[in-house]
Design a binder for these strands. Structure first.
Length: 553
RNA sequence: GCGGAUGUAGCUCAGUGGUAGAGCACCACGUUGCCAACGUGGCUGUCGAGGGUUCGACUCCCUUCAUCCGCUCCA
């Protein structure tokens, strides 16, 4: 079986799943459009998620393996939020990085992460890139953890000296970081790992948040951002939801919606896009119960993909290592899929389940948090001792009227990518197999083996031939399926085998054919996409048979 | 952002400094009638975009956009 990404992308385009955005104008890097079938598919992904997580959740019964009963509600919040939201959440600071590229080593660095120090070596010189000049004083750099040692190594390497001459280096000034160095000086800087000086480009700002302007006469003062995640819309509405909807801890607030990030390198089809859709849950619970809920959501969300047909061989639940954790996170697990565009043994993130403690609610209460010298989270202060980004000042604590306690809930965040999930389901569905044609000769078949709940078209209806009343009868059956709310296609074009193959290629699970017998005894055949098995059923049972086979949708 | 490759019909691809091609798909008619059938006929192109060289550019040159691969980046 070949799962080459190229073939999957071609099929997506050919059959109207996914198109390049603005394609007739040459395309737009990092943006994709869903065609008719892709729209149905993605809607089924979203609907399945919302149905399984929220709509069908019974708050009166504790699911097996859940620590207790819980409630689930939804919100739908605006794409653009108050700019202060992003300052307090930490996105504003973290998304604005000054970066430099090295022309020699082809590597890219965050300016503030490069340590540097000026050095000379007894009249020895270093070549300058792009000129004939030789320098007797250069600034060496390091991104290593042990930068003191690394700076020494870099300096010796630059001057072409052996390690034993380390004590003959003449250092000037203290170790600094490159963001504090004037750009004019960059010609004398030896980049990490480089052999010549002056290979760094001028620093460029990488603004990962998408900026926009509010107001018809908007100036830069009216700058706002398109949200880089939907989660903050939930956090800032936490109090509203608690005050308005009689929810009691533990409960989750869910949201499905678009988010935007200026990814540096959009790549791999829809996997890394600049506009993408998230399906997020922020689950609020008592701090002392948070570990149990974290485990519950990890397993629950992993199982969700398996239940929708993703094979266990290609789906992993991976706990982050301690050093991989974001500064606020107590624990994070990724649900990852072995996409065909990745190397063997590599996985791409579909969803992150994070234990976020009280970080988010606290941030919006008190202001932007950062780790202090003791390693505790505290409001980040400016040099003048005032909060760097002031919070809302609103009380976001929760009063537990059973325990008579007031506290800040902890949060478990299962954050799924709707486009990534859709892409994973597409990749997972793609199969090539051999099926016999009418002469019994084996023919290559492309079949999208979508789980029936996700299949963009649930059933297709064919009259075996275009006359003898069959099209009319087929139209009746088609009408009944449509009236039942099922996404269906009617096709009387071409040979029957070709019509089956067309449906296989878009993953339609069931094909219903009206033939000569139908006209006699009012029965039709229903053909299964994966087994090719045909069963004869009564016309009046068609809707019940199809909905029955589809299961709960 | 860097390096390499690619871009021609709906799809897969050929092509040459001198009138744009094939197969498949699609549509119509006929024949057949349950797994990519056959016959006949038909439709389809800003040769990714912009500029330059040339009498003439799909072809040569420059720029640009997009996709893929490798680096890099990814709170």
């Amino acid at each position: 079986m070949s799962r080459s990404m190229e073939k999957i992308v071609a099929l997506c385009k050919r059959r109207g799943f996914i198109f390049q955005n603005s394609e007739i104008y040459g395309g737009q890097n990092g943006f994709w459009d869903y065609g008719p079938l892709g729209t149905e598919l993605k809607r089924n992904v979203r609907d399945s998620w919302y149905h399984d997580m929220v709509a069908a959740h019974n708050e009166l019964v504790a699911p097996e393996s859940a620590p207790s009963k819980y409630q689930m509600v939804g919100v739908e919040t605006s794409l653009i939020m108050h700019p202060q939201v992003w300052k307090c959440s930490g996105h504003y600071d973290l998304f604005h990085d000054m970066m430099v590229d090295c022309r020699e080593t082809k590597s890219r660095f965050r300016l503030d992460q490069i340590r540097c120090r000026t050095v000379r070596f007894e009249g020895e010189t270093v070549k300058q890139d792009g000129t004939e000049a030789t320098l007797d004083r250069v600034m060496v750099t390091s991104t290593a953890e042990d930068f003191e040692q690394d700076l020494t190594d870099q300096a010796l390497k630059a001057f072409g000296k052996k390690k034993k001459y380390a004590d003959r280096l003449q250092w000037e000034g203290d170790v600094s970081t490159l963001d504090k160095v004037d750009v004019e000086q960059f010609a004398n800087v030896v980049a990490p790992g480089a052999t010549k000086a002056g290979t760094l480009t001028a620093p460029r700002e990488f603004n990962l948040m998408m900026k926009t302007i509010i107001g018809a006469l908007g100036t830069d003062d009216d700058a706002a951002f398109l949200r880089p995640e939907t989660a903050q819309g939930i956090f800032v509405n936490f109090k509203n939801v608690v005050d308005s909807s009689r929810v009691k801890l533990p409960f989750g607030i869910c949201q499905v919606g678009k988010s935007f990030r200026n990814e540096i390198t959009p790549r791999n089809f829809t996997f890394r896009s600049r506009e993408f859709e998230q399906m997020e849950i922020e689950f609020f619970c008592r701090p002392d119960e948070s570990a149990g809920w974290y485990k519950y959501w990890r397993d629950r969300r992993y199982q969700w993909y398996l239940d929708l047909g993703v094979s266990q061989d290609r789906l992993i639940l991976r706990d982050h290592h301690a050093e991989e954790l974001a500064h606020y996170s107590v624990g994070t697990a990724d649900i990852e899929y072995a996409f065909p565009f990745l190397d063997e043994g590599e996985f791409g993130e579909l969803e992150g389940v994070a234990h976020r403690g009280d970080f988010d609610l606290r941030s919006h209460m008190e202001g932007k948090l950062a780790r202090n010298a003791d390693g505790d989270l505290a409001v980040e202060l400016n040099d003048d001792g005032k909060p760097k980004h002031r919070g809302s000042g609103k009380d976001l604590t929760y009063f537990d009227d059973q325990a008579k306690e007031r506290f800040l809930p902890h949060v478990i965040e299962p954050s799924a990518g709707a486009d990534r999930a859709t892409l994973a389901f597409i990749c997972e569905a793609y199969h090539e197999d051999q099926q016999p044609d009418e002469k019994g000769k084996m023919q290559e078949r492309v079949v999208m083996q979508f789980h029936p709940r996700l299949a963009p078209v649930k059933a297709a209806v064919f009259p075996l031939i275009k006359k003898e009343g069959m099209p009319e009868k087929a139209a009746e059956v088609f009408g009944a399926l449509k009236a039942a709310g099922l996404s269906c296609q009617y096709d009387q074009q071409g040979a029957i085998g070709r019509r089956y193959r067309r449906q296989d290629e878009i993953g339609t699970p069931y094909c219903i054919t009206i033939d000569g017998d139908t006209m006699q005894d009012d029965t039709v055949t229903i053909r299964d996409r994966d087994s090719l098995e045909q069963t004869r059923i009564s016309v009046q049972d068609v809707v019940a048979e199809v909905t029955g086979r589809l299961g709960s949708v």
